[in-house]
Every structure is written in C-alpha cells, then in structure tokens.
Nucleic acid binder design. Structure first.
Lengths: 224, 224
DNA sequence: ACGGAAGCGGAGGTTACCCCTCCACTTAGA
DNA sequence: TCTAAGTGGAGGGGTAACCTCCGCTTCCGT
C-alpha cells in the first residue's frame, strides 16, 4: 500500500546524525543531574548550560519541557519498579521490608526529580504504571512481614509513600552535606515499625486512604 | 533641650488612626494564614487580597516584605520558645520528650511559614535567639530521657530538627486533606526512639553535627 | 571534495510574576 | 468643616522562564 518497501507503518524515526545523537545523550545526562539536584523545577536553560550546549539544541531534540521529562524518566521509572520487585524474592520477610525501604529510600533521597515524579505529581502516563506496579509489591511485602509477626499490624500500605516523603525531605535538605544521613532516619523508622517489642503500642491516628492520597498529589502539584 | 515638653527621645510612635490600626491587624492575620498555608514565598499581593485590602495599604504599614515577616513572626517565635520550655516541668522524662515533639510537631505541620523561619532559614535576628533557646531544652529533655533509660542512647540533639523536618514534610503535603495525619508518623518516630524494646538496635549512621546543620540551612536558603 | 540537509548557538520576543511607588480619592476625628 | 492620615490599585521596573528564529557550522552520501 505504501510506496515504501520495508518500513510500513512504523513512525519512520530516521537515525540521528552522529553529533546530534551524542548531544541528545549529553542533554539527558545533564537533565538527570540537574533534576536530581534541584528537582523538576530546574530550568531548561540550566540544563542546556550544564550540558555545554545551546538552548536551541535542547528544543530541537525535545519539543518542550515535558517531552524531556518524559523521555528522561521513562526508563528510570521502569528500572525503579524492577528493583522494587526484586525484594519479593527475599526469603526473610523483615529483610524484604527493609530492602524495599532501603532501595526506594536511596532512590528518592538521591534524586529529587525522581521523587517528584514518583510520589508528588499526579499520576499520568508512565507514572501511573509504576505506582500500580508498586502497590501490590508494597502490599505483599507489608502483608508477609505482618503475617510473620515482624511488622506491626497497624501499618498500612499508604504509610509507605509517606515514609518515602519523610526520607526525601531529609535527602533534599542534606544531600550536599551528608548524603548518607537519610539512612539514620530510615533505621529509626524501621525500629518504629517492628512488631516484636516489649512495649506494644498502636497508632491512634488512622492511615491516609488511597483516595485522599490522590487528592494530596493533585492539590500539591503544580507547586501551587 | 528639645522644644518638646514630655516625650523626649522616645521613637514617638504616634497612635494609628482607628481604621489604620484595624487594617494593620487584618494584614497580620491574613499574612499569618497565607504564610501558614503556602510558606514564606507567598506574595504580598496575595496577602493583601486575602486581607481584602489594597497592596498600597500593606506597604504603608510595612515598608517591605521582610518587615512584615519580622513583625509577624517575632511574637510567634517567642511563643514557641515559651511553649517548648513548658515541657521542662514535666516530671516523667519520656512524657516530656513526647510533649516536646508533639508541641513542636504541631507548630511546624500547621504553619509552613513558621517551619521555614524556625528550621530552614539561616538564623538571623529573632531566629538565632529561638534556636539558642531550643537547643538547651532539647539537650535537657533528651538527656533526661536517656538517663532514665526511656530514650535510646544513640539519639543526638540534632536529630530533633531532622525529625521536625520529616513531620513538616508530611504536614505540608497533607495539611489540607488530613491535618492530623502527621501525628501518626510522630507515633512511629516515638516508637523508634524508645530504648526499652526487646530487640536492641543502634544507628549505623552518625547524626549530623551542628556545623553541618548550619551549612544545610545556608545551602538551602533562599530556595536556590 | 562538495553540496545540501541536518544540526547548532544564543539573542531576544513573549509572557508571567512580583516588588514596590505614586497619586487621586476617601475617611477619621479634632 | 477641614485637614492630616489613610486607601486602592494601576502601573513602572525588574527578573525569570519558555520557546522561536535564523545565520552559521558540521556531517555524510555521492
């Protein structure tokens, strides 16, 4: 039907010229660094300068800011989901829980941009997918640790993103000075989460329910 | 010496006209609300609109933005320090610790502006004074709870502002939807802080030292 | 080695904010 | 009633971010 021989209805992305391909990678690398350090509000001019390129070059490759964010985080989000899924293989349910929090804590404290796409922004496109991947993992890991009596019974899956928020706040503030500090507070949280303590206690305040979680994201983004 | 009879070298603040005094209070009330909800980055136009007054009126009363912030937070900061000092009278050292975190947690989660003045901004003027008031209180409360064997021994005074940061993050995100939610995570932190548990554990990551705390504040303010 | 398509840089247009001033009008209160 | 004090809000001045445009440069097939 088409006059073209082989490539039928593919979008026909002809390969970039070699210098353009190299610059594309530079832009993505610079964007990764800048978004990690300053969050998604970093400017494209900043990113271009960081890449050692002109702004025009950035816009030639990515039609607008969101396209860049999308291209940058698509693969990283998939990677995060994959990493999180790894903990399901951990035989010890408490270790699985700790590894889940360590893994995701490391992600959100090291990379502010990734934290924002993952936790803060209303889900759309790849974001929704990752969160839908995460929920069953969190539920499974929490459930197993609770069944084994390691994790206190009154913890809910929605506590997970909230704890990540707490750690991300530490990370954002102290990343430049003490990039490991967040782990101290992860340890603190983990000690609070353990069920096998002498002094039993239970929360007097209910967890946030998933619908309100959505409202939190929609109210808080874009940054008012 | 002066031609004036009674009022010598007093600043001679002549009383405001009644409507002006009323509007001054309105401005302060509006500023309190807006700064609480949106932080110190809120605009003066916003505050004026919120007060139902023109911007000119705001500037007539407060020569610039900082003067308004100063006037607004001077008394509140003093109040915070006073409230914090109250917990020193609590006989039970663990209850004192909890009350300290509850009190300050309530402050920083309900009022984002106050949190920023208190924890985020580099200290200057009244801020430094409050922080100098807080440090001995925190040290005393922590020390007593540790001596009594309630608080784990490896907690440091600098953990206090970090925990407030964590709670403030929860507060900022969920204030509009679940203004009480932060207390759930305070309970979690408190459970992590207790020393009298079966499974002893201690931090593998050192606390941040006070000098680095200062660096954190100076690096993070003004908001890049 | 050459020609043209693809790519590049970055000045600057456009838009959006925000701080603060200014001044014609209004109001309190002696 | 008269005037000093107060008021509103348009708009000046400045900054910042997004994105476009176009003259110049670089790649690469022939």
């Amino acid at each position: 039907m088409s006059p073209d021989s082989a490539v039928e209805n593919a979008p026909a992305e002809k390969p970039l010229r070699s210098d353009a391909a190299r610059n594309r990678e530079r832009i993505l690398a610079a964007a990764a660094e800048v978004f990690a350090a300053r969050g998604l509000e970093a400017t494209l001019d900043d990113i271009a300068a960081h890449a050692g390129l002109g702004i025009g070059t950035v816009y030639r490759r990515f039609p607008n800011r969101d396209a860049l964010v999308e291209a940058l985080f698509e693969e990283r989000l998939a990677g995060v989901a994959t990493m999180a899924a790894l903990v399901l293989d951990e035989p010890d349910s408490w270790v699985a829980l700790r590894r889940l929090l360590e893994t995701m804590g490391a992600v959100v404290t090291a990379d502010q941009g990734l934290f924002e796409v993952l936790i803060c922004r209303p889900g759309g496109g790849g974001r929704a997918a990752v969160r839908e991947t995460m929920l069953p993992i969190v539920t499974a890991v929490f459930g197993r640790a609770q069944a084994d009596g390691h994790l206190r019974a009154d913890v809910a899956p929605t506590d997970f993103p909230m704890m990540l928020r707490m750690l991300a706040g530490i990370g954002e503030a102290t990343r430049e000075v003490r990039p490991d500090l967040w782990q101290r507070y992860l340890e603190l949280l983990l000690d609070g989460l353990r069920a096998d303590r002498c002094g039993e206690s239970c929360f007097t305040v209910a967890p946030i329910d998933p619908l309100d979680m959505d409202r939190v994201q929609h109210l808080g983004w874009p940054r008012r």
